[in-house]
């Protein structure tokens, strides 16, 4: 690339320098790890022992999966440390909207088109 200063709003000229250095601490990684272990253990214990079934089980499963996703985003991927403007966050939200559209849309459209 040509020598070019990446432009962004409200960002001081040297703001980018500290970005990598500030990524996480041992404490945040350990908390994240423990949380993800717990969030994996919960569905295993609850669902495989049939403590909940049917729709409730699905809610527990998907709920813990989403929570674990959030844990990874904040404790491992350091999403909240992004400087403004938060293009990465915007891109992620956009991507998730499209993923939800693909999954939910396909299920909806294919409901009456299933071969069985």
């Amino acid at each position: 690339m040509a020598e070019q200063h990446p432009q962004s709003h409200g960002r001081d000229a040297h703001g980018g320098h500290d970005e990598h250095e500030s990524h996480g601490s041992l404490k945040s990684y350990v908390i994240g790890f423990v949380l993800s272990l717990v969030l994996t253990a919960i569905p295993l214990i609850v669902v495989l022992n049939d403590m909940v079934t049917g729709t409730a089980a699905n809610v527990v499963l998907l709920g813990t999966a989403v929570l674990q996703f959030v844990v990874q985003l904040f404790f491992f991927m350091h999403l909240k440390e992004e400087k403004k403007p938060r293009f990465n966050l915007l891109a992620l939200i956009l991507g998730l909207v499209i993923v939800m559209t693909i999954v939910a849309g396909s299920i909806w459209i294919m409901t009456y088109n299933s071969v069985g």
């Binding site: 990524h23 996480g24 601490s25 041992l26 990684y29 790890f33 994996t40 990874q72 491992f76």
Partner: peptide, 12 residues
């Protein structure tokens, strides 16, 4: 899960 944690430790 553990490997995700250790890759974080590598960054640290």
């Amino acid at each position: 899960l553990t490997s995700s944690f250790t890759s974080g430790l590598a960054v640290l």
